[in-house]
Each structure stands twice: as C-alpha cells, then as structure tokens.
Write a protein that binds this DNA or RNA. Structure first.
Lengths: 215, 215
DNA sequence: CCTACCGATCGGTAGG
DNA sequence: CCTACCGATCGGTAGG
C-alpha cells in the first residue's frame, strides 16, 4: 500500500526566521494516532501498518518507535483513547436523560453515534479480538460506561428481580451494539429501510423497552 | 506463523496394494476450506494466509491455486458456504416455532448458536468489511433467512403499521446479532452473568418482544 | 528523528 | 500438485 504524506501532517518546516517548527505542535505521537485512525478506517485493524502510519505522518519508518514500543502499543493507546471518549459520551447521555427509560435511550443513541463517528476507535475497542488470543483484551475502563446502564435499568425496574434486570441489561447492550455494528458494516442496506439513524434507533429502543412496572 | 500439517489432513498415502489415495476423498478444495476455517478461528480473517492453509492441509504453497483463483476467491467460497448453513438453520428454526413469537425466538437462538458453533464462518460473513472497500460485500443470499424474520414479525403484529413492524425487525436482528457478537468476543465476561447462553437469550428475547396486540 | 538494513512472510507465477 | 522463485511488505533494530 503506497501512502503519501498527508498534507495536513507535514514535515517540520522552518519559519522565515529559521527556527525549526515541531511536528504538529510538537506531537508526532498524536499525529501517528491520527494517521492510524485514518488507515484503520480505510483498511481495518489488521490492514494497518506502522510503516504506513509513519509515511502518512511524513516521518521515517523508524520514527514511531520513539513514541511506541511496538505496533501493539500504538493499538493499545488507540483503544484507551477510544474508551475515554466512549465512556464520556455515555456518562453525558446518562446525565442528560431525565427519566430512567430516557437515560437508557440516550445512552443507546450515544453508543451508536460514537460508533458512527469514530468507527476506527470502535473497531479497535470491540472488533479486535479477531482470534481468542489476539493480544488486545478487554479494557477494564470499559466497565465505567457499562455500569451506568446497570444503574439506569435498576431505576427503570425497581421492583424487578436481579435476574430480570440482568436480562434487560443484556438486551439493551446487545441491541445497541448489534445496531451499531450492522450499521457500520452496511448490513442494513438493501434489507431494511433506515431513514435517519438516530430516530430509527430511538423508535426501536422505545418499542423494545418494557415500561416500568409492567414486567 | 509456523503451521504444521494437520494430522487429520494427511498427504496422500499409498495403500498396501500401492494405489495412490486422493486427498481427503479427492477433495483438496474441501481440505483447504477446512484449514482456512481453523486458521480464521485462531487468527482472524486478516490473519490467515493461503500459505498457512496449504501447509495445514499438507500441500505446497502453489497447490491452492488449482482450486481457487486467489485468496479472495477462497474467502468468497467460505462466505457462501456459511450463508447456506446459516440460512438453513434459520429456516429450520422458523419451521419449528409454532407461534409467531416462538418462531422469532427460535430463529434468534439459531442465529446465535450458528455464530457460536461456526465462529469463523460468522466472521467471514459479517465481520469482514474491515474497510468500506474490503472486497467482500454482503452476499445476496443473506436475505433468504432474513425474509423469514420479516414474515414472523408480520404474523406477530398483524395489525401494526409497516413502520412499527420494520422497527421490530431491526430490533430483533440487532439484538440477536449484538448478543452473538459480544458473546464471541467475550465482551460479557466480567461484566454480566451469563449462565447457559441459549436460555439467557431466550429470556432476553421474550422479555423484549412485544406481545401481539399490545403495540 | 533518519538512513540503511535484516529476517520473515505473503500473494502469486513459471515451468514443469 | 511440486519446486523454485519474484517482488512487495512488514515489524523491528543498529547506529548514528
């Protein structure tokens, strides 16, 4: 794969006064992460190489090793970055929802929008375990957004048993994750009519969510 | 990756009478597909090579090209094979269910069991579009099992609008797909208690499915 | 952060 | 279906 340096990720230039300007505000590390995201978007996690990322950032093939021990370390960094963004989006959605069920719906919407807006992060976070021992295991910080779902479900079904709540947590998580994944993969195309993604998801979620006290 | 020939996929042997025995009942093609499935299970779709598959089947690196034009052709074959099995399993489940809602539940169970029992097929079928243009697009025959879900939902909600039915089709498909994927990826581990996978899914699905006439 | 390079792997082909 | 091989790519390192 021939990768040309991204025009937005230039090599250092000298100003008219002759000082050397650092990479991207001095942050090659960030430039490499950005390049990796772009390449993963285009070619998938396994189809991305450090050499390509270096070329896209306009540096030599050895340069990335100044910032990452190896390729996997870069992927870990991307995964961590993704979970920070993801958990923040879920927390914001949780806070925004005014009722238990709207908290759940907002979190679901945030989950899917995150996947659509950050597909490369999403793939690194959830689609990486290509094999049982692919190296990149689940990240502990994954739990943080997830616990909010557990909390919202408890609020929605205060009198339900723990088992029933557990069932609903699994249902909501599975539905939203499957929706996001199928959307990213384009699997709905041609099979189902999906207009606006967000309103489709809202309708689907509310249709599915048991009303409180009904269980 | 060093791949040793699989003891179940031996090179041709001579019987005591001296005749040459063909590969696997004369079917190297089948042996290569089987080897590919095993490698994809272990290393993911992108982590599998024709050379490894050939080695695992006990033949030279050039041999696969007698049966497949190139690597992608083998993956296509695997995808097609997967959809045949998948659609058959869904059709059987549809037929087995006695009511509309049990048809849906049985299809969901079949969907997930297929994913668990044929993870490599499942990955090739649904997890391949690593990038927007990864080559392996959706297969048309995918629709066949899917249409049965549309039919079952129509039977479940005979008086509902087409839009509502559509919402439920998307909900059911997303939920089951997400459940299967998260299960394969091991994402539930540590976060949620899942005992028996099948009964968990049955409970989750029935909890979620609107009863007929209730919408 | 660069040049130069290694050892390994990969898809694919030539020519039996 | 095999041997032998090419051209390309990749992760990573030596030694500035």
């Amino acid at each position: 794969m021939k990768i040309l340096p991204d025009s937005t990720m230039q090599r250092p230039k000298r100003t008219q006064s002759g000082e050397k300007q650092p990479y991207h505000h001095g942050d090659l590390r960030a430039a490499l992460l950005k390049a990796a995201l772009l390449l993963i978007d285009r070619h998938g996690v396994k189809g991305f190489s450090l050499k390509d990322a270096a070329a896209l950032a306009g540096v030599s093939t050895a340069a990335p090793y100044r910032h990452f021990a190896d390729k996997q370390a870069l992927l870990y960094a991307l995964q961590g970055e993704g979970f920070v963004l993801f958990n923040a989006a879920l927390a914001e959605a949780f806070a925004r929802g005014e009722t238990a069920s709207s908290k759940i719906v907002e979190m679901g919407v945030a989950y899917v929008l995150f996947a659509l807006h950050h597909p490369a992060h999403f793939r690194v976070m959830f689609g990486l375990n290509a094999g049982p021992e692919s190296g990149l295991g689940p990240d502990p910080s994954r739990a943080s957004g997830f616990l909010l779902l557990v909390e919202a479900v408890a609020a929605l079904l205060p009198e339900a048993s723990a088992a029933v709540r557990n069932d609903l947590v699994i249902a909501a998580w599975s539905l939203v994750h499957g929706f996001a994944w199928l959307q990213i993969e384009g699997a709905f195309a041609g099979s189902v009519e999906i207009g606006d993604v967000e309103s489709q998801l809202r309708r689907t979620l509310t249709l599915t969510l048991p009303r409180a006290g009904q269980s």
